[in-house]
Measured scan of single mutants.
Amino acid sequence: MSRESDVEAQQSHGSSACSQPHGSVTQSQGSSSQSQGISSSSTSTMPNSSQSSHSSSGTLSSLETVSTQELYSIPEDQEPEDQEPEEPTPAPWARLWALQDGFANLECVNDNYWFGRDKSCEYCFDEPLLKRTDKYRTYSKKHFRIFREVGPKNSYIAYIEDHSGNGTFVNTELVGKGKRRPLNNNSEIALSLSRNKVFVFFDLTVDDQSVYPKALRDEYIMSKTLGSGACGEVKLAFERKTCKKVAIKIISKRKFAIGSAREADPALNVETEIEILKKLNHPCIIKIKNFFDAEDYYIVLELMEGGELFDKVVGNKRLKEATCKLYFYQMLLAVQYLHENGIIHRDLKPENVLLSSQEEDCLIKITDFGHSKILGETSLMRTLCGTPTYLAPEVLVSVGTAGYNRAVDCWSLGVILFICLSGYPPFSEHRTQVSLKDQITSGKYNFIPEVWAEVSEKALDLVKKLLVVDPKARFTTEEALRHPWLQDEDMKRKFQDLLSEENESTALPQVL
């Protein structure tokens, strides 16, 4: 008996699950189920560990084997000379395990699969056993689809999209007709009724959600790893209520002995410091949205989908001078704002400069500016000194954290500008005749005249004003913003236009 009217009423009120309206889709043409990776026989039982391990490696599972009696060998002398080797079968990115008779397991190899009674669906509900069930008529011709799209860092995100009359449910929550939600590992998919569980979705590319604290899981769906560094790992996640993407940084307390840091400095109150950081608001710094204190720290951040500045300059790639100017102007505005709010970044580098898009002209935002507030000064500097390429001379020669101030950030900005303009770092371990530390503390950077011949004198002058060993003589952010190279009204107008595109209400910060 159909429950279409009941569920449609529920759909009209929406769902609290991570779902959002989605535009129309072009329906895929039908194809045989076997060619799409559906096993030839149905099963109602969950797999054992041996079955799972075989399939996850990209080899055929026991459900897909063919009797050897149906095959015969071709003698080598009868092999056609022009026969080309077969292409290897792509490894599946996800697996659906059937929970009921009449449904088959599915190895997801393609990027898009339609499910329903219509014969054009890649996964067609046409098993005779299924057709005899009382629920068969409640399934729509095109009930739902599972697909994946390219996300940040060229990774993939799996989604389920509801197109049914009676509802598609993920972990008992209604997706909603015309809406989608991301699928995470071990999600249970039910059709027409929330208790009519048909599939379990296994994402073969992500970790299980159960490793994360419950308070975090209640608000966010964790997904793929976006990156990792000395101070922690960053994962893509989704807000459950809105389906908006965020980035979540995970900082290990054990790695940084944060408990010991608190004992050594009783004034170090991470929760208080995070609340201060959350109040920071500038178009060129990453917004801190939320914070969870569990076995590790979880910092929920605004997501930038254009990648890191590092990706644009790695491998001796240089940027156009006009692009360097647009990016560097924004970096200076961001660091100036942090300094005005009493925050020294201490870890400025291309990896911590994020881009809003893949376009050459785009907004940038500074991230990882609050680590000293979370990890403690000593722990952070011990970590950073392991990779000193961007560290100021006074940091390398000081004991502990004494003896330096916000000028350290201006040195790091000078190193970043040098790399963007030239395509190579000013200080490098590859210069074996002088140690990296000695290069930095003496201010002897690697200047290649033929490379810098293409760079304007004004740009080079600003680099020199920032890479000054004496912090008292080094340019401040205010002085850098007043430098002739940055007195470019076309560049500032472009920045204002980019801000307006992102948010019509965002105004250009005042600069002296």
Rank of each mutant, 00 (worst) to 15 (best):
S2W: 10
S2L: 10
R3C: 13
E4V: 08
S5I: 15
S5V: 15
S5Q: 09
D6F: 00
V7P: 11
Q10T: 03
Q11L: 12
Q11S: 06
A17R: 13
C18I: 09
S19H: 11
S19C: 05
Q20N: 03
Q20A: 09
P21C: 13
H22N: 08
H22S: 08
G23F: 02
Q29K: 09
G30S: 06
S31W: 08
S32R: 08
S32A: 14
S32V: 09
Q34G: 05
Q34S: 11
S35I: 11
Q36P: 09
Q36G: 06
I38P: 09
I38F: 04
S39Y: 08
S39N: 15
S40P: 08
S40D: 10
S40F: 04
S40Q: 05
S41Q: 06
S41H: 10
S41W: 10
T43Q: 13
T43I: 08
S44P: 13
T45M: 12
M46Q: 05
P47R: 00
S53W: 02
S55C: 07
G58R: 12
T59G: 14
S61Q: 03
T65E: 11
T68I: 11
T68E: 08
L71I: 15
Y72C: 14
S73L: 15
I74Y: 15
P75N: 04
E76R: 10
E76C: 07
E79W: 15
D82V: 12
Q83M: 05
P85Y: 15
P85K: 02
E86Q: 13
E86L: 06
E87G: 11
T89S: 09
A91H: 13
W93L: 01
A94R: 00
R95P: 03
R95C: 04
L96Y: 02
L96M: 08
A98C: 10
L99E: 13
D101T: 10
D101G: 11
F103D: 01
N105Q: 08
N105E: 13
N105F: 14
N105S: 15
N105P: 13
L106V: 08
L106E: 07
C108T: 14
N110T: 06
D111N: 10
D111L: 14
N112R: 11
Y113C: 06
W114H: 11
F115K: 01
G116P: 01
R117Q: 00
D118C: 13
E122P: 05
Y123K: 15
Y123C: 13
C124F: 11
F125L: 08
F125N: 02
F125T: 00
D126K: 13
P128A: 05
P128T: 12
R132L: 14
D134H: 13
D134L: 12
Y136T: 03
Y136R: 05
T138E: 02
T138D: 03
K141V: 01
K141T: 03
H143F: 01
F144P: 00
V150A: 07
V150H: 00
V150R: 07
G151P: 03
P152S: 04
K153E: 03
N154H: 05
N154R: 04
Y156C: 12
Y156M: 03
Y156S: 06
Y156D: 09
I157D: 07
A158I: 15
Y159T: 09
Y159N: 15
I160G: 04
E161Q: 14
H163Y: 05
S164P: 00
G165M: 09
T168F: 00
T168D: 01
F169I: 15
N171Y: 06
T172H: 04
G176L: 02
G176T: 05
K177H: 15
G178C: 14
K179E: 02
R180L: 07
L183R: 02
N184M: 06
N185Y: 06
N185D: 06
N186E: 03
S187M: 11
E188F: 10
I189C: 03
I189F: 15
S192M: 02
L193G: 03
L193C: 08
R195K: 07
N196Q: 02
N196M: 15
V200Y: 01
Q209M: 01
S210H: 00
S210R: 03
S210K: 01
P213S: 06
K214R: 11
K214L: 06
R217K: 09
Y220S: 01
Y220V: 07
I221G: 03
K224W: 02
L226M: 09
L226K: 14
L226N: 01
G227L: 02
S228D: 00
S228V: 04
G229E: 05
G229R: 01
A230V: 14
V234R: 00
K235M: 11
K235Q: 10
K235E: 11
A237G: 11
A237V: 15
A237P: 03
C243F: 11
C243V: 05
K244R: 13
K244E: 08
K245N: 13
V246T: 01
A247R: 00
I248S: 08
I250W: 05
S252T: 12
K253R: 09
K253C: 10
K255W: 00
A257V: 06
G259T: 03
G259F: 14
R262S: 06
A264S: 05
P266H: 04
A267S: 14
A267T: 14
L268S: 09
L268E: 12
L268I: 13
N269W: 13
N269S: 06
N269V: 04
N269E: 04
V270H: 14
V270P: 08
T272A: 06
T272C: 10
T272Y: 14
T272K: 12
